[in-house]
């Protein structure tokens, strides 16, 4: 049984004032591979994976909408499978491999799927985009030639309040039928795109995590 560790706490700023008067239980050590990098940290058990990605690991791309599992904007891949990062405690991610939207572009170049989102106008405000990109990444890895019907069924998991579903489906379908490897950054030749144009990823230097900073507010 894992006892609460006495590792130095990596306290995240509190988001809500807590009426409970008991002290915060000691943080729990977590080892997780995020976008290929093994990371070791210790987190309060009540932090969601989304919070820890955003706030402790300096990866603000994963958005949080409802925190109730309904909207899907927090979708990341856990061991290659899509999961809601708001309905997973960071401590549950111990020992897993997590992929976020920040893993898609390489050296400032959008991958084929991101490029398709941009070209097909599959985003307006972009809030839902990271979730859709990760959902589609998982789908196309398993079914590179997924039919429009399959794509439709798959993206029904997530909500887009701007209502760009047809364009989102168009974008994913264009990558599917093009047979391009949606996960390869260089699959589609194109001009280097500055990182801040990456659909779904807010401008960030994800390489250097800044624990404790709230990049989202």
């Amino acid at each position: 049984m894992t006892a609460p560790s006495d590792t130095a706490p990596e306290r995240l700023p509190d988001l809500v004032s807590d009426v409970a008067s008991e002290p915060e239980p000691a943080p729990i050590p977590v080892e997780v591979t995020v976008n290929g990098d093994p990371r070791a940290l210790s987190v309060e058990a009540r932090r969601s994976l989304a919070d820890v990605l955003n706030r402790a690991l300096g990866l603000p791309g994963t958005q949080v909408g409802c925190e109730l599992g309904a909207c899907g904007t927090c979708t990341v891949l856990v061991n290659g499978e899509p999961a809601r990062a708001c309905l997973m405690l960071a401590v549950q991610a111990d020992g897993t491999e997590v992929e976020t939207v920040e893993s898609l572009a390489r050296d400032g170049r959008l991958n084929a799927l991101q490029k398709a989102f941009s070209e097909k106008y599959a985003l307006q405000c972009g809030f839902c985009t990271p979730g859709f990109l990760m959902l589609a990444t998982a789908l196309l890895r398993k079914e590179p030639d997924a039919s429009r019907e399959r794509i439709r069924e798959s993206v029904s998991a997530n909500l887009c309040r701007c209502g760009g579903y047809s364009q989102i489906i168009d974008a994913i379908e264009s990558v599917a039928t093009a047979g391009a490897d949606a996960t390869a950054g260089d699959a589609i030749p194109g001009d280097a795109v500055p990182r801040d144009a990456t659909p779904g990823a807010e401008p960030t230097t994800a390489a250097e995590p800044t624990p404790g900073t709230d990049a989202r507010s």
Binding site: P25, I28, E44, V91
Partner: peptide, 21 residues
Amino acid sequence: MKPARFAYFQPDSVDEAVACL
């Protein structure tokens, strides 16, 4: 919102889990 504070346990077996409960 975020969950209120709780103590967290990761038992390794059913026996440990029921004892912990």
